[in-house]
Amino acid sequence: MSAHTAPYEPVFVGARKQELDDVLTRYPTKMAALLPALWMVQDARGWISEEAMTEVAAQLDLTAAYVKGVVTFYTMYHQHPVGKHFIQVCTTSPCLCAGADKVVDAFLEHTGCKELGVTSADGKYTVIEVECLGACGFATPVQVNLDYIENVTPDKVPQILAGLK
């Protein structure tokens, strides 16, 4: 992957370093800033590389191995690059009984993603099933990057995709 061949550019410089310093004032330990720091990395880079884990570890006086242990626990941290539009369709039972599986099929079909979790050839889309998004009354909720789209039905999928920038 090209991301590994380019020299690593640190995330925590300038405004981001300042932001991390502000976050650190909220907690009695440096370790408590780990999840916020990882979010800052993902916000800046789109995913969290091993180099970034090493950088975060150095910022918070942790080991890179420890940071990796935490990263791998949480499903929202990407350990590899994903499509520009990361599409998560809720398929837990309350949504499944409302037809969420058909919504998944529609996204796979219209994005050209051949299977769940595999980014489309043009790099634009990754589609996954996600466990309960906590919006069950608005079935089927779909999270595209950070935003929720509610009451999604298969027929709305082409229009939703057309609206993504």
């Binding site: 499903t75 398929t91 769940l116 099933e129």
Partner: peptide, 10 residues
Amino acid sequence: TVAVSSGAAA
């Protein structure tokens, strides 16, 4: 009639 979806959530 419909199999349980495969659940490939990351």
